[in-house]
């Protein structure tokens, strides 16, 4: 097992406090309402802001209640020597949960789940980017989940597409991400972490989750990923629901990008004012 030699890990004889926490029996919602009072088809309120990391070429931050994701885009920069030659551009995606973001502490290095998420994120974004515009160059996308309260991948897809647009990378369309949790015949949009949770002794016919990347103005699906055992009819319903919900996200993305344009020009004009001020006195 690869160990992290650069950091001090905790003593070997430690026990996670979660070992003493009572495990939940069933998905809460099966017995009643969703715990935050939403209807099954409602998204959590979204806060989305572009241009948050000054060093990066483009960046974005998304907050869906307690799911908080930050994304920074660098490049197009030169590809490393190890990459094989291609006339198209390359996108490099790194998805990482911050160590403190989940119920269980994450490691500093990417684990297999995070690597899997990186690939899924890349699959969702690749169809939307004009790769021929930067031949033999690569764009790096770094996504950090600051707090995970479910639907992290969907939030990451939305956030990364806004960051790419903010970086001025040519794109065919923005990508909105949406995920649903399926339990029995229930389809829950934008599940929280407790809704994503499935206990061992709870085995309905349909259980799992679907995440969809959707290009809202081209009406095209860029990627689908599903987990668990789901019947075809139910997954069809889930995908339709995801698509429709992503469509409702589009105005949010648009507004966010427009606002970032506006704040940029505002900042620029302010610096001009300051400049005039200096000249006069």
């Amino acid at each position: 097992m690869p160990t992290d030699s650069r950091r001090l890990t905790g003593p070997e004889e430690t026990k996670s406090p979660y070992a003493y926490v009572k495990q939940k029996k069933k998905l809460q919602v099966l017995t009643g309402k969703r715990h935050d009072g939403r209807s099954p088809e409602t998204l959590r309120p979204i806060f989305l802001k572009a241009d948050v990391v000054s060093q990066a070429r483009g960046s974005a931050y998304i907050e869906q209640d307690n799911t908080k994701v930050m994304c920074a885009v660098y490049g197009p920069r030169e590809v490393g020597r190890k990459e094989d030659f291609s006339m198209k551009g390359i996108i490099n995606c790194v998805f990482k949960y911050a160590t403190f973001s989940c119920r269980y502490r994450r490691s500093y290095q990417q684990d297999s789940e995070e690597k899997d998420m990186s690939v899924q994120l890349l699959d969702a974004l690749e169809p939307a980017v004009c790769m021929h515009k930067f031949p033999k160059a690569q764009v790096d996308i770094y996504v950090t989940v600051l707090q995970n309260d479910g639907s992290a991948l969907a939030a990451a897809i939305t956030c990364a597409s806004v960051a790419l647009a903010n970086a001025g990378v040519d794109m065919y369309d923005l990508v909105a991400g949406c995920s649903v949790r399926i339990a029995d015949n229930l389809v829950l949009v934008d599940p929280t972490e407790s809704e994503e949770y499935k206990s061992q002794d709870d085995n309905p016919v349909n259980h799992g989750s679907v995440t969809l990347g959707y290009m809202p103005s081209l009406y095209q699906v860029s990627a689908i990923t599903s987990k668990g055992e789901i019947e075809f009819e139910v997954i069809k319903k889930a995908i339709n629901l995801c698509g429709n919900t992503s469509q409702t996200l589009y105005p949010v993305l648009q507004k966010c990008l427009n606002n970032s344009r506006f704040s940029l020009s505002l900042r620029f004009s302010l610096s001009l004012v300051r400049y005039h001020f200096c000249v006069q006195f």
């Binding site: 794109m171 065919y172 923005l174 809202p216 103005s217 081209l218 990008l257 344009r261 506006f262 020009s265």
Partner: peptide, 15 residues
């Protein structure tokens, strides 16, 4: 300086 009243586009917007 870019005036805010100019039309703003986002990727994928039909012109």
């Amino acid at each position: 300086m870019s005036a805010p009243m100019e039309k703003v586009c986002v990727p994928g917007q039909r012109i």
